[in-house]
Design a protein around this nucleic acid. Structure first.
Lengths: 216, 216
DNA sequence: CTGCCAACATACCAACCAGTATGTATGGTA
DNA sequence: TACCATACATACTGGTTGGTATGTTGGCAG
């Protein structure tokens, strides 16, 4: 039936590899939810994007809701961990590290237009579904705690001002990142995000103790 | 047919007052869109909330999209003008005025849980519908310009630091407000918004020239 | 070779969606 | 009093939704 099955070697087993199918579903669901929101992302569109059928979906997930939860836990959360948590493990200068991450935020047009997947889902689903809300809150909390943690370390080693409240500052940083993300998404303009990144970086520099200021 | 029509005086004309019906539709649409997003707000729900029927809706608006556009222009935009633009007209101290507005942001649970109507719609519809995007961008632009304007005035009269770039600072303020709004909406917790307001106010105070600092 | 179960595919469903076609009451005008 | 446009109300439609019931296939145990 499948023409590709003729000359495929061991890769043919993928045609019946449940983990592979599950992963395809998760990625497709993420794409469509990212594009049009969870509620408006139809199962048929997700299935078409994944290249599987409804039977496969409901074999792996018991509902659309469950699929959405899995997207949060298995796609969005790992993405935040990779972008914010891992780079903050064992750094020498927290401010430098945070500046590096913020400057590494993508300003490609399609990313700016799509916004932050975490924030998108939180905005849409937090008031409507407690299951989404809790899972997203866990991600936000881990994010803030990771930032607050390096700021505390920076304070003990003298690279961060003592009068900074780490948790507050971490929350402010996240609010700035998400806020500028929203503005840039509405403007559909990478320039807005670039300007935002500059302002956030300036603010991050202001967290250094007086006299310890590096370049600028 | 209507029992209430018996003893109603001139108010009975409201039963056939097109402007009144239109306004009810706008308010109901705003409520439902605020509750569940534009795409997920069904016309039947809006109509039930407004207490009118589909015939009335399609007499006043040519489509659901047109109704949504009208909500932006006739409900959301005036709300932002009333909250941010009007209070900033002819103030003596811009920083004080901005602090006053920020501290006036509602922290009632239902408002925190619902988030900012402007940001909600922008997040949902900006990438999907240019008509929404443009109308919302106009509101954001007016908001930022109003803040930037008072900051410029403050600079000429000496109540705002000269090294502050008014447009940048205005954008940062809005990003903070919307960003904290998002975090508080996800947390479903007024405390998050209160903490955000304190941090924003602290940042606003830092815009004052050195030596001109009032209380704190 | 045979059964059997995991891993899907296909066909179908009631509910709901935005939108439309048509009916009707009302107040003003001639 | 007859007429008529305005301002709706009601009934209906084709298409889409998430979900289900049932059919089919591949690979491995025995």
């Amino acid at each position: 039936m499948l023409a590709a099955g003729k000359n495929s070697k061991r890769r043919a087993t993928r045609l019946r590899d449940p983990e592979y199918t599950r992963e395809r579903l998760l990625q497709a669901a993420f794409r469509e939810v990212y594009r049009s929101g969870f509620q408006s992302a139809s199962l048929d569109t997700i299935l078409a994007s994944a290249g599987v059928t409804k039977g496969a979906l409901y074999y792996h997930f018991q509902s659309k809701e469950a699929l959405g939860y899995a997207v949060v836990e298995e796609v969005i959360a790992p993405d935040v961990r990779g972008t914010w948590l891992r780079p903050l493990q064992s750094v020498k200068d927290p401010i430098d590290a945070l500046i590096g991450i913020v400057q590494g935020i993508s300003v490609r047009p399609e990313v700016v237009r799509g916004g932050c997947p975490l924030n998108n889902l939180a905005q849409e689903m937090s008031p409507l579904d407690a299951g989404f809300r809790k899972r997203l809150a866990i991600v936000f909390h881990a994010w803030r705690e990771a930032v607050a943690s390096v700021l505390r370390e920076g304070q003990t080693q003298g690279s961060v001002r003592r009068d900074v409240e780490p948790t507050d500052a971490a929350g402010l940083l996240i609010a700035m990142v998400e806020g500028y993300g929203s503005l840039a998404k509405n403007a559909q303009d990478p320039k807005v995000m670039k300007a935002g990144i500059r302002n956030i970086v300036d603010w991050l520099r202001s967290l250094r103790p007086p006299g310890n200021r590096k370049r600028g």
